[in-house]
Nucleic acid binder design. Structure first.
Lengths: 117, 117
DNA sequence: CTCCTATATAGATGGACGTCGATCTGCCAC
DNA sequence: GTGGCAGATCGACGTCCATCTATATAGGAG
């Protein structure tokens, strides 16, 4: 019962190699990482990337009736992807009579863009 | 049976508004959208964003044993996230004895970064 | 060889995602 | 009012994802 139990961590390195230097990681981005991962998740589908691409290249509002025939998808599916982008703050929408128009919100992509470059 | 079925599309516009102008969308990016969405999916988790952030700020190889204690996650979960990043081509790995070192592959983020800016 | 350590893999589980058809909501024309 | 149209929402289905525990692999120490 009173034997020496080998419980001490001891951190025995197999050789004299340092491996884990005591480098400090100041955790630069916790909330920032959450924000950027949400934008990345909104872009984690090729359809949504193409939707944003079309909206950005148009530099103005684009009617949904123009977006739907661009894809081999049903209208509800395209509407769902637009909703995902809108809830991520990447695009905005506006109704005019029967039609709905979507546009990009450039600031939403800025943080991720800066971090990537 | 021989009545006039109202099958003609007719595209009746509620008013004289144009709505859908005949703008051509040259489908700038189909495979490109797939590639970028795969990179975005790899970044669609805050843990993976922070992993890439740490690796980029270090500008060299970082041992896994340094990455695991940065998160409140089990070691297999961190290993899983590193695998996701590696399969997306965002990071690379290298074994030295017992330890494994990970590093960023900058070119993987270039396409998405350029497109975002 | 045996023990220990660092990492990867396997299997399970609860939850989220992409897609569809069907339906609902407004709006315009008549 | 009725009818029709654009778009959004709902419910369901199959698949993928993030996490865990448990186990496997592989290399060094003794």
């Amino acid at each position: 019962m009173d034997v020496d139990l080998p419980l001490a961590p001891k951190v025995k390195r197999p050789a004299g190699e340092p491996c884990c230097e005591p480098v400090v990681y100041p955790d630069v981005a916790r909330e920032q990482a959450v924000r950027m991962s949400l934008v990345a998740k909104a872009l984690a589908d090729p359809v949504r990337v193409q939707l944003v691409d079309v909206l950005r290249k148009h530099a103005g509002k684009v009617c949904v009736c123009e977006l739907v025939p661009l894809f081999d998808l049903s209208q509800p599916t395209v509407s769902h992807h637009l909703k995902v982008l809108r809830e991520a703050g990447v695009v905005g929408s506006e109704r005019q009579g029967l039609w709905a128009y979507y546009f990009v919100i450039p600031d939403a992509l800025a943080e991720l863009s800066v971090w990537l470059s």
